[in-house]
């Protein structure tokens, strides 16, 4: 499979802060590629470099064979970008916004309407409503429609689901799957780890460095080993007690329970006895199913 985005040793510094350090990454054509990392990891900086808004200090990057520095003008016509912040004109109506962005790229709205029809469908009920008066989920659908109206070959989405409710988020990922069917490559960033599992490949990024790149399945393989859930009625003392136990590498909250990452030779039964001796009468420890979040915590910890 061809790589449609190729990033080679990109470094970007903001005075003293290094936002990206030697980032090398390739995104295969026609895939949904996730960029997973916490706030401040450098995701937005990477997007700004790929969308030609920012020049890298070192390294090169190409999107659809076009260099982000030299071919920036042509590159802008083949990408669709949805920034993290809502960036449509709030005082233009739904249809005016769509019309405006279509005409800037020199296409008619109807030309590529098939592409956005599933997304725009829900907005067609109120074409005359001001974009600023839309709900969060609807704004996001309009922004995605505007980013797609010129049929880009690469769609760059910077934290598209931040601040969107769980149902809309799931719908949004269904839409991305449909776009992928139509041959559009999607690079999507998120800080929601559960969304990572819906990507074909993911890159884990933290503090400006890529920690690992693989399919979600491959990445979490082997994580289940030595990973346990722990719970008790007094969670905080439990967390502190577990962190002091021998054989425990890390312990962190995970939803309603704690996840305990351990070394080989850790015996859960002994650990329970130990905890009960410390007064945590209802402490339980049982095997856990690892996911991307566990991996991320593990990698970030190794990285210091």
């Amino acid at each position: 499979m061809n790589d449609i985005i190729e990033i080679q040793g990109i470094t970007k510094r903001y005075s003293k802060l290094t936002a990206l350090s030697q980032v090398t990454l390739s995104v295969p054509q026609g895939s949904v590629f996730g960029l997973i990392g916490p706030d401040g990891a450098g995701k937005t900086t990477l997007y700004q470099i790929l969308t030609t808004l920012l020049n890298p200090d070192e390294g090169t990057a190409t999107v659809a064979g076009l260099d982000v520095v030299k071919d920036f003008r042509r590159l802008r016509t083949v990408i669709g970008y949805m920034p993290e912040k809502f960036s449509l004109y709030p005082d233009l109506t739904v249809s005016e916004n769509l019309q405006f962005f279509a005409s800037l790229f020199g296409v008619g709205v109807n030309e590529n309407f098939d592409l956005i029809a599933p997304i725009f469908g829900q907005l067609e009920k109120f074409p005359g409503r001001m974009a600023g008066a839309l709900s969060g989920g609807m704004k996001q659908k309009l922004a995605l429609s505007c980013a797609l109206i010129h049929r880009p070959s690469v769609l760059l989405l910077d934290e598209p689901t931040t601040g969107v409710d769980a149902v809309s988020r799931s719908e949004f990922w269904d839409m991305l799957a449909q776009l992928k069917e139509k041959g559009i490559t999607i690079l999507v960033s998120t800080s929601y780890m559960d969304e990572a599992e819906r990507c074909d490949r993911i890159a884990l990024i933290n503090k400006g460095k890529i920690l690992d790149v693989d399919t979600p399945q491959e990445l979490i393989k082997g994580l289940d080993k030595n990973l346990y859930n722990a719970s008790a009625s007094d969670m905080y003392p439990l967390l502190e007690a577990l962190r002091r136990l021998p054989g425990v590498d890390d312990c962190y909250t995970f939803g309603a329970t704690l996840h305990v990452a351990t070394r080989d030779g850790f015996n859960p039964a002994e650990a329970i006895l130990d905890l009960r001796r410390q007064g945590l009468a209802d402490a339980r420890i049982y095997p856990a199913k690892g996911n991307i979040e566990d991996l991320f915590i593990k990698l970030a910890k190794n990285d210091g």
């Binding site: 969308t51 030609t52 808004l53 003008r73 802008r76 016509t77 990408i79 970008y81 920034p83 912040k85 809502f86 960036s87 449509l88 004109y89 709030p90 962005f101 800037l104 790229f105 505007c146």
Partner: peptide, 13 residues
């Protein structure tokens, strides 16, 4: 301030 300039800047304008 509203961020619309970012969407404009990635167009060929």
């Amino acid at each position: 301030e509203s961020g619309t300039i970012e969407a404009m800047n990635v167009t060929p304008v």
